[in-house]
């Protein structure tokens, strides 16, 4: 059993879903990081469980695994460090760490 599996077995939270990230055409960061971001298309844009919106530059940050409260993410397009939290509407929201 790997270390990850051991931790998962004792973790009260269910394991995180994994996501295959494809290129979305976002080209505002170096090539190897592009799959981790996509353009936001406004209020009606529904975010997946592995996505959170950067409040500073309005780019969607994508992770290869499901995001949860307390996770730290980095917005490379605006170089902001963010922490994932729960918004008033129940969805995931990121706040900036200065």
């Amino acid at each position: 059993m790997s270390e990850t599996q051991k931790r998962t077995a004792t973790d009260p939270e269910p394991p995180r879903a994994r996501f295959e990230l494809e290129d979305t055409g976002f080209n505002e960061v170096p090539k190897k990081y592009r799959k981790f971001y996509r353009r936001w298309s406004g209020e009606k844009d529904e975010l997946a469980p592995n996505e959170v919106l950067c409040p500073v530059c309005k780019v969607v940050i994508r992770s290869s695994r499901e995001l949860r409260e307390g996770d730290r993410v980095y917005c490379m397009p605006c170089m902001s460090r963010l922490v994932v939290g729960r918004g008033q509407g129940g969805g995931l929201e990121a706040t900036v760490r200065y």
Binding site: E28, C57, C78, M79, Y98
Partner: peptide, 14 residues
């Protein structure tokens, strides 16, 4: 502009 607003917020906060 994404970089510019990001710099403004991140550098000026502290």
């Amino acid at each position: 502009e994404r970089r510019h607003v990001g710099f403004g917020e991140n550098r000026i906060g502290s």
